[in-house]
Design a binder for these strands. Structure first.
Ligand code: MN
Ligand code: MN
Ligand code: ZN
Ligand code: ZN
Lengths: 144, 144
DNA sequence: AACTATATAGGAATAATTCCTATTTGTCAA
DNA sequence: TTGACAAATAGGAATTATTCCTATATAGTT
């Protein structure tokens, strides 16, 4: 099952790259793999440190440029933080986030009611909606 | 009415400062006034540029330190962005945000249904909730 | 008015991100 | 297969955002 999920997501990666005429490089491949493995919404620097274990002289700029490119083509999302480094999320399905203001952890949660909340028409009319998400801010169990 | 609102909010500012033993300095006063006037969720730098017109040699560090202090005592909120400089909001009442991914504008909207959405107990149990907000991400009318 | 703990200005240091460019490489067509 | 070449990378510089440092000034108290 894990293997199948990986195959599915690596196919998604390859398809999206081809769709946007992006070359499938070893760097992009390892960066996407690390993003897909991470459940903790890593920063570019966190991905850089992991990618480095595979390619010791990959540059930070390559990692940063690549995750931003992935975000641009919709392969990953940049998720809401409060300042600080950008955080990336390879899960593009509808879900929601808890954010701990002490340790900056971003924790996923799923909620059908939240998913199905309608966006008012007056917003849809004047704003092209790409995503809707509930952000709950507070202090996580580890931090109190 | 605007005058009254200003008085109310300046009293809130003074009370909160006294409550936390923060001195009421001219710098803090002008910073809070600018925050309260701004409806666009300014960054520390945006507030700095405005405060400078009143006190030409106020330092950026003072502005930054002060808005972070205000956030700490709950006088303002740091609002969700996606990387980039922190953005501040003097409106601490429940409301929600549209965020334009092109121009980084953060636009307020109010919605009773969103306000009244319950937070599941399993979240409340393991997480100290301070705030809940719906973030809608997309492209604003000016940007398309 | 004097005292003193707190706050500020200004500059330095650090962290996060983006830019620059010589070199390398993935892809495609021969 | 092999070469051609547009695209991507590494490495470092530059830029932007934030935090730290410290001598001086001042708000609030006595
Ligand atoms: Mn997530
Ligand atoms: Mn707001
Ligand atoms: Zn935490
Ligand atoms: Zn816009």
């Amino acid at each position: 099952m894990a293997i199948k999920d990986n195959n599915v997501s690596m196919n998604l990666f390859r398809d999206k790259c081809k769709e946007h005429n992006l070359r499938i490089t070893p760097q992009r491949t390892v960066i996407y793999k690390e993003l897909h493995k991470s459940k903790d919404h890593p920063s570019a620097d966190a991905i850089f440190r992991k990618a480095r274990k595979v390619f010791p002289n990959i540059s930070f700029d390559t990692v940063n440029r690549t995750v931003l490119t992935f975000a641009k083509i919709g392969l990953v999302n940049v998720v809401e933080g409060c300042g600080g480094p950008k955080r990336f999320d390879s899960d593009t399905e509808s879900h929601h986030h808890l954010r701990c203001i002490k340790c900056n952890r971003i924790i996923d949660f799923h909620n059908k009611d939240y998913d199905s909340m309608e966006i008012p028409d007056e917003i849809k009319n004047k704003f092209t909606v790409l995503r809707k998400r509930v952000c709950i801010e507070g202090v996580c169990s580890k931090c109190r």
